[in-house]
Design a protein around this nucleic acid. Sequence first.
DNA 1: TAAAACTATGAACGTCATACACAGTACAGG
DNA 2: CCTGTACTGTGTATGACGTTCATAGTTTTA
Lengths: 257, 257
Amino acid sequence: MDQERPLPSVVERMWGREPVTRRGPRPRLDLATITAAAIEIADAEGLSGVSMASVASRVGVAATALYRYIGSKEDLLTAMADGAAPPPPEPAGMSWRDYLTLWTRAHRDIVLEHAWLLSVDRLAPPLGPRRLLWLDRALAALDGTGLDHGEKIKVASTLTGYALTDAALIHSIGGGDPTMENAAITGAADYGEVLAGLLDPVAYPALSAAMRSGVMHGAEGWVDDEDFVFGLNLLLDGVEALIGQRASEKQRASEKS
Amino acid sequence: MDQERPLPSVVERMWGREPVTRRGPRPRLDLATITAAAIEIADAEGLSGVSMASVASRVGVAATALYRYIGSKEDLLTAMADGAAPPPPEPAGMSWRDYLTLWTRAHRDIVLEHAWLLSVDRLAPPLGPRRLLWLDRALAALDGTGLDHGEKIKVASTLTGYALTDAALIHSIGGGDPTMENAAITGAADYGEVLAGLLDPVAYPALSAAMRSGVMHGAEGWVDDEDFVFGLNLLLDGVEALIGQRASEKQRASEKS
DNA sequence: TAAAACTATGAACGTCATACACAGTACAGG
DNA sequence: CCTGTACTGTGTATGACGTTCATAGTTTTA
């Protein structure tokens, strides 16, 4: 019943806890170089280019050698998802709102730079050191707002979800990377036209009205930073309202005493 | 240059546009029964149980017969993602806010019932008839709020993202389905403990403070409906503020005239 | 009745993740 | 210094899977 839970060994390795034995040949690899290689491949060729064989050959070993470091390909993907995150921006005296805006946008940009994250990230709570550092900074930004720990975490995870949603939208509509894999739609204009052609105005009254109105026509940037800020502000306005509510609660309590 | 864009043939078939030829043996299948079979398998065994062979055998044909109806497994997954959506709730005289709350929760519940959607859904804009019906109803609920079409769409897509985020959170933390595939974490209590054990309080000050505070301890429902409503209200408060802003703009314009 | 158009089949291929036995290598203790 | 031990990378093998293709069978059209 201690904290001696086995814990996925990949997670251990992500935290630098490589096994401590000093016997046999010195390992030629470590988890970091493996994941770095895998990330490079995924960035260049998409996730479908990432196979055990391709990663192994990039780091110069046989395919099966990787299994000395990771238990399965799933583990590799988990490690990649953490490894793709750079250090978070530091909240150098910014307001919580400015920082979280910056934080969320940066988060989204990472996903856009590594579009394969959209296919890897199951939105599961992170366990790797890099992703947790991001979480930490978001919580830190909310210090002094009167929110409790649970609320802060929920705010952060909601913002994470928003970053992912926005990235997915930009990627699937505007993007059109050459390395894109599920390129169902090639541009915003197409999407609007296709929909307009498919929709029965009786069964889909509101949607076909929207399509006829010409939103989404004109591919150039109907999903742009303004739209990102738009949706984000919906959230942050809500957060701000909550903070105000907590503050007034606290004030009322102090008046009472 | 007409709207005669080829359009993924799966999409055509999702809309019931099966080819019209009347020669040769009558087809024994159609896309709907194939996707229904695939969805049943995915619900029962998870996404990894869904192979061309397993789906084909469930509908009683050889594996390769499926390729008469779908171009690839990717197409099958696309069709599954649409087919898993039941008809949306109808806004029987509800306020936009009540309806969107209902809508988002129902959306999330669908994802929870079909957890494999988390791995299939790339958050790409939908093209199938069922998913678009959901979108239509959300837009319809926002009629009369003064928002323009683009804003309505952005609100709906933000809510979609929120539903997915929340479903992912519940699934990965609380869930613990037997059919779960990437069961990295088995319960909320574990998550908090594991994190508390891993974190260096110096490098992760805010996060380890949160962990020490005991949030996330006690697996029973730290992610519950209250939390869902909490985050959702952040969003809806923002939407409400926007609607108010649009309304006052309109009023000012009419005063001026 | 014959051709045409379409359907399902079975075999075959290439790719991939992964298991396993083996060979080589470095440290520990005598 | 030397031997055992524990660990690392390799090669081969296997089974599952997605997909292609030629073929045989079936229904409609002419």
